[in-house]
Design a protein around this nucleic acid. Structure first.
Lengths: 139, 139
DNA sequence: TTAATCCCTCTAGTCACTGGAGGTTCAAGG
DNA sequence: CCTTGAACCTCCAGTGACTAGAGGGATTAA
């Protein structure tokens, strides 16, 4: 069973060492085993969890969403009603994000293909991102 | 030509009043006109810009990405090479996000439909979000 | 014109990190 | 074994992006 020092974990997960300690401090990551000399040693599972956190954060999920996603992910054994509701809420959030991003994507593509040389149509990136009506969830 | 007080702007854009002042302070929003009594008055264009900012932030774009998106959006008159490159970079970022979110969506759907009562398959939400290989851009 | 509401600036607090000081532990080479 | 340099430890202070509050002035509806 593989063991990682905090530096190795940092490398493998792409998360800075102080950030790992911070996550431990706020309870996002469980406190790992320690060596005789008080240094942290992590296993595979904790690496996965940290990657999960890093990736979710990079995608813009709030810390709260993250905690509940982790809760969902923890319930691999058949969701209770509680977890089910969480999953539903996240599905809605995810759908909104995908819709927004897809529209933005369309605009970027149009910009790149359409307006390349001199003459241009309207760039609607601003409208795409500023039109709040098209955004199902409040924020 | 319509004028908004900072409070009205806040309502229409869904951004808190102190946040608007903060955005002005850091130069994301240009300083608006003032009344005789020194109160801020905004126009349509600034409302659009603020909505843009709010929406982009809600979707998890970093402040830096945001500034450059604004730069792109500003160049509605035929992109120079510079802006073109920015747009390309954002397209890549947007594509990555869409891909990640789509996979996460699939997992959430599978959880909700598949594992509802008792017997369950594996929940792979963690794997979906923790698999860094499938993420084209570094973060 | 006066009262309620909104706005002003300034300062301080929060959250999620990020970095540094000062000291300890680990592991590879001699 | 023993050393030595990189990596680790704790603690504390700083940053970015807000957020809230105090103390006081402006606007507007009655």
């Amino acid at each position: 069973m593989q063991q990682f020092s905090i530096g190795e974990l940092s490398l493998h997960a792409g998360v800075k060492v102080p950030t790992i300690r911070y996550y431990e401090q706020i309870g996002l990551l469980e406190a790992p085993l320690r060596t005789q000399g008080n240094q942290r040693r992590y296993g595979r599972a904790q690496l996965e969890r940290l990657r999960f956190i890093a990736h979710a954060r990079a995608m813009g999920f709030a810390m709260d969403s993250l905690r509940s996603l982790l809760r969902i992910a923890g319930h691999r054994q058949g969701p209770c009603a509680d977890v089910d509701a969480l999953a539903r809420a996240h599905l809605a959030e995810v759908d909104d994000r995908i819709a927004s991003l897809t529209r933005l994507r369309g605009e970027l593509v149009a910009m790149l293909s359409g307006g390349r040389h001199g003459t241009v149509g309207e760039c609607r990136i601003v409208e795409v991102l500023s039109d709040h009506e098209q955004c199902a969830s409040a924020h």
